[in-house]
């Protein structure tokens, strides 16, 4: 029971502090995954993000359902999903009922003016951390321990060029291309 309550509260917190779309949730989730030792490893989280691109629905619901199920079965999935959905649900109900000009309020705008650039910085850091983890098998706090993975570096360069050249490439295609790159680089060589 305590575990279910923990899942609910943690995802409620995550839902409450996610501004700017589903991916803005990833840094918060990563932190909780490490802290609570969910999912065996951060790699499983990254793998699931890829899966989530090819399944329907909001990312937030997908990731809550996945972690909840992984930690405490179907009931766990239910508690985590309820947790991540409830903050939005309650806040929107209050706004629809009482505050019709919420989005033009000066302080709301001020809050977002500060939050959005901070999230840009946070997301860039998390992306960098994921790249380092794959290419030199370490994180920013342990840079002296790096081990260069040449294949991963080549994949990174290749994917980066493809993503720049094909503007607005559908994320699902990028995932598929990166899967093929991984298969070729690690399977054949």
């Amino acid at each position: 029971m305590a575990e279910l309550f923990d899942l609910f509260i943690t995802f409620f917190k995550i839902g409450l502090f996610t501004f700017g779309g589903g991916y803005a949730m990833i840094p918060l989730i990563q932190e909780e995954v490490i802290k609570n030792q969910w999912l065996d490893s951060v790699e499983t989280l990254v793998d699931f993000i890829a899966i989530s691109e090819s399944t329907p629905g909001p990312f937030a619901v997908n990731i809550a359902t996945f972690i909840g199920y992984h930690e405490a079965g179907v009931i766990g999935a239910l508690f985590a999903t309820l947790g991540v959905v409830l903050p939005s649900f309650i806040i929107i109900l209050l706004i629809a009922r009482f505050f019709h000009h919420f989005q033009t309020n000066r302080y709301v705008k001020g809050f977002l003016k500060g939050v959005k650039p901070v999230i840009v910085g946070i997301l860039a850091t998390v992306a960098l951390a994921f790249v380092l983890r794959s290419t030199i098998h370490t994180d920013i706090m342990h840079l002296p321990d790096w081990i260069v993975d040449v294949r991963a570096l080549i994949i990174f360069a290749g994917l980066f060029i493809i993503y720049r050249v094909f503007n607005r490439l559908n994320p699902i295609y990028l995932i598929l291309i990166s899967a093929v790159f991984g298969l070729v680089a690690y399977g054949l060589f």
Partner: peptide, 17 residues
């Protein structure tokens, strides 16, 4: 093997976000 590549793809998607 495929996921070794996919993890790098995901990092690019997050950077794009």
């Amino acid at each position: 093997y495929a996921f070794q590549g996919i993890r790098i793809g995901v990092a690019i998607l997050i950077f794009n976000a």
